[in-house]
Simulated assay, not measured.
Amino acid sequence: MAKKPSWKYEQTVDRVEEILAEIESGELELSEVVSQFAVAVESLQQCEDFLAQQREQVELLLENLGDI
């Protein structure tokens, strides 16, 4: 799943929170709820991928630190 060059974790989390608030408001049509839910799921997957990459990087740095 490719992320845009300007992609930011914090902004993506904020957007997911906005989407959830919109869904919880009860003001959206069902089709909009499903559409927004799909966007939220995709955004959360991007966040999960980002965090996994960051965790790998930290583990590598810690491993290298142990070699010093």
Results as ranks from 00 to 15, higher is better:
27 E>G: 03
65 L>H: 07
13 V>M: 12
26 G>K: 02
24 E>G: 00
41 V>T: 13
32 E>Y: 05
6 S>C: 05
15 R>I: 04
48 E>L: 11
14 D>N: 09
14 D>C: 04
10 E>M: 06
62 L>W: 08
27 E>P: 00
58 V>H: 09
27 E>C: 02
37 F>Y: 15
5 P>N: 05
58 V>W: 14
48 E>K: 13
44 L>R: 11
16 V>D: 01
52 A>P: 02
2 A>S: 12
50 F>P: 00
52 A>R: 12
6 S>T: 13
28 L>Q: 02
39 V>A: 12
4 K>P: 02
59 E>C: 04
52 A>C: 06
24 E>T: 03
27 E>K: 12
32 E>T: 07
14 D>A: 12
34 V>C: 07
30 L>F: 14
13 V>Q: 11
17 E>V: 05
67 D>R: 14
2 A>Y: 10
51 L>E: 14
18 E>K: 05
29 E>R: 09
15 R>N: 08
51 L>V: 15
35 S>K: 13
51 L>H: 06
55 R>W: 13
6 S>Y: 10
12 T>K: 03
17 E>H: 08
57 Q>M: 11
55 R>P: 04
36 Q>P: 03
24 E>H: 04
49 D>I: 07
41 V>W: 11
13 V>H: 07
59 E>N: 09
60 L>I: 08
50 F>T: 11
12 T>W: 01
35 S>A: 14
29 E>D: 11
12 T>Q: 04
53 Q>W: 11
40 A>H: 02
5 P>T: 04
28 L>R: 01
5 P>Y: 05
49 D>V: 07
46 Q>T: 08
64 N>L: 12
20 L>P: 00
55 R>A: 15
66 G>Y: 04
40 A>W: 01
43 S>I: 01
60 L>K: 14
